[in-house]
Design a protein around this nucleic acid. Structure first.
Lengths: 221, 221
DNA sequence: GCCATTTCTGATTACAAAGTCAGGAAATCG
DNA sequence: CGATTTCCTGACTTTGTAATCAGAAATGGC
């Protein structure tokens, strides 16, 4: 893990470095690490290829710093969830899931990256877990476990809720090319978003909740 | 004559070619096209690297022929579904979904490939749609549409059911490395399979079905 | 203006991986 | 057996891409 030893942010704070990170994030998330070339990133950022190496030591370092752009996304999620910390387990879980879905639509790069690296494994996945998504996922598992313990949800391995939320929640956005090729529909449109959020919440919550006698408020027993 | 069970394009029918296809399928599905090298495939198949080029014109051709190994999987699915062609729309859909989940577990390569290429787009995705998954997906959409028209399911864009089934159904298997890195659990185990199938079916069917006795519309818990 | 520092680029190198080819080994057939 | 075809490999070429470097172009201080 010598790679992670250096400063997390090595790129200068200037506008050029920011443009490069932005272009890199978009390309890495769509195509993955190997399929994306430094030349493509440079072209997308409007600079020459050696400029990338001036701002970032190597491709892996650029990848990591591009991913850190997503750190703010996670932080915002944390903040909004913290506001509801006093609600019941099910209410918190519902809010977390809704947030997750909204974030997946607002920042498709995060879901795509997790899907890509989460499938392949390796040191980039380890880095993601350690630096971006590990705590968030553990928090979700905790909420699910709490809701199950409170008798609000059917018992199931709570890790599976996370992975299902992750894959199904980001699925429609991630699979935009597939849907276009297979059905000729553009699933990245806003109206699709609305319907999909409804679908996932209806499905995961509607299907898993243990309905109590008229108690729909989500409060603790 | 070849002992192969599926349609073959250019690869000879011998055992060596079959071993190569097998190794290629496994590697391509785990790592994707670019991340997999011809050398790795050769090593996994126990032959030298030029042997790959003797049996297959180039890497893309090998990829396509490796994918065709999955043709038998799809065909089996078709066959089993055909047996229930006279059931109602919802019953057919339920059976199709159950089959989909079982296939996802039995042949993880299919789900991983679709996830990988469905995210990136390009000519390999087009090929997959045309030759492997397009018809199957359209069939699923047809079943969902039928179940909605029959008033059995809440109205939602039926393409979204397909993409959700695809991503959520294959999600737990696909994300094995992520779950291992994040939670230290091996989600490829059989008991996990059972629970996950239950989760998906409970969620998608339990959450979307319109219960006809009381016919409550709209209001989501 | 002039110098120093930072920022960027063209040209080049290094290397990994796909693809080629001549020829050797092994199977097939008379 | 020898002849012929099929199958496979070592050595090689080609290509694409990450990384390097010397120096040009800005930028900022005086």
């Amino acid at each position: 893990m010598a790679d992670g030893a250096g400063p997390i942010i090595s790129g200068k704070g200037g506008r050029t470095a920011a443009r490069i990170r932005q272009a890199a994030l978009e390309l890495f998330s769509r195509l993955g690490f190997e399929r994306t070339t430094m030349g493509e990133i440079a072209a997308a950022a409007g600079v020459s290829q050696p400029t990338l190496h001036y701002h970032f030591a190597d491709k892996a370092q650029l990848w990591r710093e591009a991913m850190l752009e997503l750190g703010a996304v996670i932080a915002e999620e944390e903040r909004l969830l913290g506001a509801a910390a006093d609600a019941g387990p099910l209410a918190q879980l519902r809010m977390a899931m809704r947030l997750f879905l909204q974030i997946s639509w607002k920042h498709p790069a995060l879901g795509r990256i997790v899907a890509l690296e989460g499938m392949a494994g390796g040191e980039r996945l380890d880095w993601l877990v350690d630096n971006l998504i590990g705590a968030r996922n553990r928090r979700l598992v905790g909420l699910a476990r709490g809701a199950i313990a409170a008798g609000d949800l059917k018992p199931f391995p709570p890790e599976q809720l996370v992975v299902t939320l992750q894959t199904a929640g980001a699925g429609l956005v991630n699979m935009t090319p597939l849907m276009a090729a297979n059905f000729g529909v553009d699933t990245a449109r806003a109206d699709q978003r609305q319907a999909h959020e409804q679908l996932i919440l209806d499905a995961l919550l509607g299907g898993l909740i243990i309905s109590r006698q008229q108690d729909k408020s989500g409060g603790q027993p």
